[in-house]
Amino acid sequence: MPILETRDLTHVFPDGTVAIEDIDLKVNEGEFLVIAGPNGSGKTVLARHLNGLLKPTRGQVFLNGEPISKNIIEARKNVGLVFQDPESQIVGQTVAEDVAFGPENLNLPVAQVEMVVKESLAAVGLSQLATRSPHALSGGEKRKLAIAGILAMKPKIIIFDEPFTGLDYPGVVQVLKEILRLHKTGHTILLITHELEKVLAHADRLVIMHKGRLVADGKPESVIYRVEEYGVRMPLRDGEKVEALTWLK
C-alpha cells in the first residue's frame, strides 16, 4: 500500500483557473520522488493538498490508505512541508523558539518540547545558533531552520518546495546533504524543483507536471529525455548519464 496517494485530485480557484486536474499519484514509503515542471504547472498547489492545506475541488488525498480529511492534524504531523520561501515559515524570534512552534501546537509537555527542539536543531547542525534571531541567518541556515521546524513534528514524509531557490553553491550543497541524510534515516522525500541538474541523481522517481496535469512518471533515466517537451530544461549533455545530475562531488 502506498504511504501517500492522490486520486483524481483537482483544484479549481474561485476565479475558474484550474490549478491541478485529475492527479493520480502514488508515493511508496522510503521513496525519493522529484516533481518537476515549469512555473505555474501546479506543483506547489499539489504540495499544499498533500498535507491538507488546500481542500480539493474534486478527488482525495490518502495517507496510509485513509483520507487525510478524516484527521487533518494527523496528516500535517506526518506530512511535513518545507515552504519555498523559508522566511514565510519563520514565526519565532529566536531559532529555538521557531522550532518549538510545531511541538507547542501539538500541546506536548514542556520538557518534551525542549527535548524535541534540541534534537531537531542538532539534526540540522544549528544547535550553536539556538539563541540567534532567525532573520540574521544565512540563506542556507534559514532553509535548515525551516527543516528543523518540520523535523520537530516527527513527520514520515517531507515535501520540499523548491528548496534550492535563492541559494548560492555552498547553500545548495548544505541543503542537498541535509535532504539526503533525511532520506537515509528513513523519511519519504518529495522534492519539487525545476533544477534537475542539482538533485536528480539521488532520486528514485521523476514526475513531470505540465499545465496542472501529471504528464510523465517513472524512473529518472526513462523520463528525463521527455522533460523539454514540457518546458523543463534538459539537464543532460551528450553522453552524460542521470548519475551526473548532482551538485555533490
Partner: peptide
C-alpha cells in the same frame, strides 16, 4: 499557511 502546516492550534503547550 505555514502556521497551519505546523498544526497551529490555540490549545498549545
Amino acid at each position: 499557511y505555514a502556521m497551519e502546516a505546523r498544526c497551529y492550534s490555540e490549545i498549545r503547550t
